[in-house]
Write a protein that binds this DNA or RNA. Structure first.
Lengths: 192, 192
DNA sequence: GTCTATAGAAAGATAGAC
DNA sequence: GTCTATCTTTCTATAGAC
């Protein structure tokens, strides 16, 4: 038995990491299967032992990327929900996030890209968005009476700001945008 | 002289309309030059008499599409700035906008798509964004003292909401998102 | 200016050896 | 499971006729 049972799983995870990384940076269409596999230390041919198509990879990579964001990977200490949300907002609306230095949220990096894909990809995006929204709403409800309106508006604004920030080519304009949205998000989610 | 002086301009405008339409609907990479030209009633070969490359077309189509939005194509009646902004928000955050029935704002439909392009395209996006923001700020300043923070936050939220709405595949979730952002945008821009 | 025809490159997916 | 080799399609861009 040349391949241990965990080998395939590990390889698969490596491919998903590679894909999430490249898709977020360049978009779905500008990344080839060859790119993904080489970035994972493999070659083209091995791809189809793990995924049926490039589209299937996209949906799974979306999930995988979402699971690594701060929102999904941490949770508030009981009684410290306000600080958790404040930290989330700060990290999300940071220059590092927009420039792609830190962990990148696929909701922002791939919004428009997902909108033109087939149903499975959009379903995955929808599920991740709803989870994001619910986690924020739950934490916020622990310390304030802000409603669904504020949570949805703040979420859309944060995703929008990061997506727009990546499209702008003027660093000063990006900073200004992030600062304004940061202040407004804190107000909407009652962090002040 | 088989071609009148205005012929080339008209054809060029038709190509730009076609491109803006298709790019917004499917994204840059999923639209070929052949698609654009056929949709404009022409053939492949004629393209390069008007544009040097597909990338150049993209930047110009972005401008062309932006010029047709309500924001750019109308202006407030003096003294009716509040109503103008309220109408803008209503139209922007409508189901028709998200579904692409009405005029589509390239800022929202192509955010992520623009982020991975070359400098000229991103510069064009930046210029259009700044103009959008300035027009809103000017109108808002006529009736309220809301500052740049609120204008930027509301702009990012509206663009974000439409972009996300297009990615979601659950109509009820889209409606809820639009409603929440609508209410919040009105508050931020002092329409209530 | 617009057409048809085509050169040349890239990428998704498959086949078969190891 | 992973490799190399390849089939096939698609697309940008150019060439040359009208």
């Amino acid at each position: 038995m040349p391949y241990p049972a965990t080998h395939k799983q590990n390889t698969r995870a490596r491919i998903l990491d590679s894909a999430a990384d490249l898709f977020a940076g360049r978009g779905y269409d500008n990344v080839s299967i060859d790119d993904v596999m080489r970035h994972a230390g493999l070659t083209r041919g091995a791809f189809y032992a793990h995924f049926a198509s490039k589209g299937e990879l996209y949906a799974e990579a979306l999930l995988s990327a979402a699971a690594k964001t701060t929102l999904a990977a941490t949770q508030p200490q009981p009684g410290a929900e306000r600080e958790w949300i404040a930290g989330l907002i700060r990290g999300y609306l940071s220059g590092e996030h927009v420039s792609g230095t830190s962990v990148r949220c696929p909701m922002a990096f791939l919004v428009t890209d997902v909108a033109v894909r087939e149903a499975p990809v959009r379903q995955t995006y929808t599920a991740v968005f709803q989870r994001m929204r619910e986690r924020i709403a739950r934490a916020a409800s622990a310390y304030s009476d802000c409603g669904e309106d504020e949570v949805l508006a703040a979420t859309a604004m944060m995703i929008g700001a990061v997506a727009i920030g990546r499209a702008l080519d003027d660093p000063a304009a990006v900073d200004e945008l992030l600062d304004s949205c940061h202040a407004t998000a804190r107000r909407l989610l009652a962090c002040d």
